[in-house]
């Protein structure tokens, strides 16, 4: 699964704008684990799962492989066919962020912004922060931050050791 740095769906027209570069961020799973949820980044083959042809984590026989990610929403062996298309046409490039990187990004964003992204877009934030250093000063970086971290309350408390305080 991917958290895109830019929003698809509503802003689909933006895909045809040449000035925009797209980076998709997949869930790389725990740092020291072989399991991941990033079929596009780690070169999985096309398969058929849940009624769609898509890049999917699988073994040579076609058995679907188990995934691992800190974020429930990304913990899926396949990926939307739209992303498969964007990868095949090279319109977007795909990379992965590990669980730890996503947590660090979450800490950073909550510290400096009045914002608490859930763990899914935290993956995107982690890559956005890393990539932003390479960009010129007038580049605008847009991150699709979907959802609030409240749903990840228990995971965050366990992993960061800080009590989660409801903000609104």
């Amino acid at each position: 699964m991917v958290v895109q740095v830019l929003v698809f769906g509503m802003n689909l027209w933006i895909i045809i704008k040449k000035q925009c570069e797209f980076i998709g961020v997949e869930a790389g799973g725990p740092k020291n684990s072989k399991k991941h949820a990033a079929p596009l980044t780690y070169g999985s083959k096309i398969g058929i799962l849940h009624g769609a042809a898509q890049y999917v984590n699988q073994n040579l026989d076609g058995q679907i492989e188990e995934t691992e990610s800190i974020s429930a929403g990304l913990d899926y062996p396949g990926i939307s066919p739209l992303h498969c298309f964007l990868k095949d046409t090279k319109r977007a490039r795909y990379t992965a962020a590990s669980d730890e990187e996503a947590l660090n990004a979450y800490k950073l964003v909550t510290k400096f912004e009045k914002l608490r992204p859930s763990l899914e877009p935290s993956h995107a934030f982690s890559v956005a922060i890393k990539e932003a250093k390479k960009f010129s000063k007038d580049t605008i970086v847009v991150v699709n931050s979907c959802g609030d971290a409240y749903k990840d309350k228990e995971i965050l408390e366990k992993r960061l050791g800080i009590k989660y305080v409801k903000s609104n």
Binding site: K45, G47, I48, L49, V56, Q58, L60, D61, G62, Q63, I64
Partner: peptide, 9 residues
């Protein structure tokens, strides 16, 4: 069976 098995084979 399921199609992915046939597709990969």
């Amino acid at each position: 069976g399921y199609y992915n098995m046939i597709f990969q084979y």
